[in-house]
Design a protein around this nucleic acid. Structure first.
Lengths: 136, 136
DNA sequence: ATAATTGCAAATGCTTTGCTTGTGA
DNA sequence: TCACAAGCAAAGCATTTGCAATTAT
């Protein structure tokens, strides 16, 4: 049974090794935003011989292939997630580290408009909200 | 003649050494977003004995005192600027690296709204646009 | 006077890389 | 077959830190 990401690799002609299949599987199943260490640990439960260097190389490869996204949230190491169907941004709970995904079309449009007003074509952007839970 | 940042240090009881005064002066005069290396070079033109460790320690100190801001734009080392009077975000030219500041109240409001809708109090945020110049 | 700061070099933490052996198409 | 990938350990890069000497208040 080949995972979501494994299929994308095949489509894009990314050579599939056992290690890559496993990393693809783990990332396909992950609903959070694991860092490389975390990925390495998860993968190692299935194959304890995979080195962390391979995990680093693979996430980079996947990122360059456009099938995973890398995030550098404030003060943390890089985190990864499978490239989503539709773009979203993130809100990070500054107390727990929990990451919440959100979509806001109005903000997206405004960003594009701002860039254009400055004479730029918007190619990429980064929007992160940092907040603390309102208790009620 | 004491610089803008030097005054703020005094107000906040930050002990003023010759090195700090110089770094404060350089940062007060900088209209761009220099990284630590760049700051070190600029400072060294006035006093070639200041170590890069001191520059690192000082920008961190200034940041914690709330008088300078640190930015980690994609793929670059940390850059610093004097804390501005009014908040702004940045657009980065992906071809030249040029950094353009902008303000957009609508986006600011929407961010706050999004956070609240998710049950969070917005404490901080990061908005960066990456674009390429439209030639005409 | 004395607690804080500096410079230096060594240490750190994350990430990348050279090299040799192994392997997918 | 054979170009490419993996594992390991070493290297790289930005940043931090321990320590002895110096300095601001």
């Amino acid at each position: 049974m080949n995972s979501n990401l494994e299929k994308k690799c095949m489509e894009r002609g990314v050579r599939l090794t056992d290690q890559r299949k496993l990393i693809a599987k783990i990332m396909s199943e992950s609903k959070d935003h694991p860092d490389v260490d975390e990925l390495h640990q998860r993968v190692n439960k299935l194959d304890s011989k995979i080195s962390i260097a391979t995990v680093y190389r693979t996430v980079k490869l996947f990122e360059e292939a456009g099938i995973v996204e890398k995030h550098d949230f404030k003060g943390n190491k890089a985190r990864y997630e499978q490239s989503p169907q539709e773009h979203h941004d993130h809100l990070i709970d500054i107390n727990t580290g929990e990451i919440i995904e959100f979509v806001n079309e109005d903000i997206e449009k405004l960003q594009k408009k701002v860039a254009e007003k400055l004479g730029y074509k918007l190619v990429d952007h980064r929007l992160e909200l940092y907040g603390s839970k309102i208790k009620k």
